[in-house]
């Protein structure tokens, strides 16, 4: 939640600066779908499955999942855009087992929050389409919520809950294609996220790192890199457009 506030605060500061620049262009709201490369967390899952002694299976292995973004763009003198971007995404893993005697479950819930700057260059396209070639550079805030629970028939249940954080950075080049429909712009965007991060550490004590005991106690690092596809709606912030928006 603290990260969310930081994200929101940062967004508001940049937003405020842009307002003072008096050259606003548009706000884009996007929803996308992206893949991840969570090798460390998959290895951690694998290690957990092997240590128990029953036939535990992974029912979730950090699949591709939706992300959501907000961009606030300003227009330069050469019709290029620059601005700020905030994005959030998530994925997760689960290993589990159940029989007549009880059940076993380990859930890993992974989230990221990204906030950064965006630069895009305009390319006019035929048939009323506009094209954009852009790149985003962001700070990357990762969060891992671990939940484990064992329940034995007649013996009750026990559960564990830990939260880890990791800080990193991401670069995301992309292509966007948009068309003006009425006063809004509807666009599709495809890109690649390249991320780097430190290993997860415990929320309460940053010195306590999450490691994989099955893999020479290496630190577990989130892997958010992957392709990104998204759709967005852009709302122009010119006076005329602003009025239409309202």
């Amino acid at each position: 939640m603290n990260k969310t506030i930081i994200l929101a605060t940062g967004f508001l500061l940049i937003f405020g600066a842009a307002v003072r620049a008096q050259a606003p262009a548009e706000i884009r709201l996007g929803a996308g779908y992206g893949s991840y490369s969570m090798g460390d967390l998959e290895a951690l899952q694998e290690n957990s499955m092997q240590g128990i002694g029953v036939n535990i299976k992974a029912t979730e292995r950090f699949p591709a999942y939706f992300n959501y973004s907000l961009r606030y763009l300003f227009k330069s003198k050469v019709d290029d855009h620059f601005g700020v971007v905030a994005e959030m995404g998530s994925t997760g893993g689960r290993i589990g087992y159940a029989d007549y005697s009880g059940s076993y479950r380990e859930d890993q819930l992974l989230r990221y929050r990204r906030i950064g700057v965006v630069v895009e260059s305009y390319r006019a396209l035929p048939k009323g389409f506009d094209g954009w070639l852009g790149c985003e550079a962001s700070l990357l805030f990762s969060k891992l919520i671990y939940e484990g629970e064992i329940s034995l028939t007649g013996a009750g249940s026990t559960s564990e809950h830990y939260t880890f954080y990791a800080l990193g950075g991401a670069v995301q080049p992309y292509l966007a294609l948009e068309r003006k429909i009425g006063f809004i712009r509807l666009g599709a965007q495809a890109g690649v996220c390249l991320s780097l991060s430190e290993g997860f550490s415990l929320k309460e004590d940053r010195n306590i790192k999450l490691v994989n005991p099955g893999k020479s106690s290496e630190e577990v690092v989130p892997g958010w890199s992957g392709w990104r596809l998204s759709m967005y709606v852009g709302v122009p912030l010119s006076a005329g457009s602003g009025r239409k928006e309202n």
């Binding site: 969310t4 929803a31 029912t59 939706f66 994925t91 087992y97 819930l109 989230r111």
Partner: peptide, 14 residues
């Protein structure tokens, strides 16, 4: 959108 985050699912019964 935060409420629309990923939730792990699945159950394996032997």
């Amino acid at each position: 959108l935060a409420a629309c985050e990923f939730t792990p699912d699945g159950r394996h019964y032997e």
